[in-house]
């Protein structure tokens, strides 16, 4: 099985975010990490390769800093990487990101493409499904299990309210992977060393420019959400906080 894993670099979960001068995006001088569901997607691809042989290729788009995500993936065991390297990719909507990816892999023959189920920054939850449609492939979303069989694959989709569903589908296919589908591995020292010799194919904006167009949706402004609730801060030493809170639990909220 030849598997492509789409990965994204996003601001760290607890990174304090500030707006930039356009007020339509954040200042980018923050710490970054791999988008969490994408890490599970990578892990699943590595496990599938261990079972069925083949190749795991990772792809990302973004400026030079995004290469870190690819390096980590290579250190964990991915075979090679593709980096659509340009700051302009950060501002693309899901439709254009998928178009850029489709253009960058047009000479490849994958059996499966994995994405995380959504990103921690935009949170559109669309890129994987759009990519499937652009490629003319079937897809399934929010996947918790993948078994290869004679005709293709059987996947376990997570539905809402605790329900699941098995879906049989042919290959090639795109799957969006749910967090928690597996247990993540750590990169080993030897893996980190080997990663240095693994190839990263760089794709410049110019190479995919003809495939992408204007964004179909535009962020007019970004802002700190207005609070709809009046929040009372409880302050003091831990012991004082405990006393104040228990008083509220007992006398105002009446649950003690």
């Amino acid at each position: 099985m030849k598997i492509l894993v789409c990965m994204k670099q996003v601001p760290q979960k607890d990174a304090p975010l500030k707006l930039n001068e356009t007020a339509a995006w954040i200042r980018e001088d923050v710490s970054y990490e791999v988008n969490e569901p994408d890490a599970f997607a990578l892990e699943e691809a590595l496990r599938q390769r261990e079972k069925h042989k083949g190749e795991v290729v990772v792809i990302t788009s973004g400026p030079a800093r995004a290469q870190q995500v690819l390096r980590e993936a290579l250190a964990k065991g991915a075979d090679r990487a593709i980096h659509l390297e340009d700051n302009a990719f950060v501002g693309l909507d899901a439709f254009n990101t998928a178009k850029a990816f489709a253009a960058a892999i047009k000479d490849e023959q994958f059996d499966l493409i994995f994405t995380g189920l959504q990103s921690d920054d935009y949170g559109y939850a669309q890129t994987g499904v759009i990519l499937a449609e652009l490629l003319g492939w079937p897809h399934a979303t929010i996947i918790m299990q993948i078994e290869k069989n004679d005709t293709g694959i059987r996947v376990k989709r997570e539905l809402e309210a605790g329900f699941f569903q098995f879906v049989d589908m042919p290959l090639p296919a795109v799957l969006t992977i749910q967090s928690g589908i597996n247990k993540l591995r750590y990169a080993t020292l030897i893996g980190i060393k080997q990663a240095k010799n693994k190839p990263i194919r760089k794709v410049a904006l110019a190479e995919v420019q003809s495939a992408i167009g204007e964004n179909l949706q535009k962020i007019e402004r970004l802002y700190v959400p207005q609070k709809t609730k009046k929040t009372e801060h409880i302050e003091g030493s831990p012991v004082e906080i405990a006393k104040k809170l228990v008083d509220k639990l007992r006398n105002e909220l009446r649950v003690l």
Binding site: D14, P16, L17, P225, K227, T228, K229, K230, T231, E232, H233, I234, E235, P238, V239, I241, A242, K243, L245, V246, K248, L249, L256
Partner: peptide, 27 residues
């Protein structure tokens, strides 16, 4: 800046390992 505070009625900004044990004792 955790988004949970956007919807919280009562906010305690602090380390849960400091806050929770005395709270349990007080309860």
């Amino acid at each position: 800046e955790a988004p949970i505070f956007e919807i919280a009625d009562y906010a305690i900004i602090g380390n849960l390992f400091d806050i929770v044990p005395p709270l349990t004792e007080e309860v």
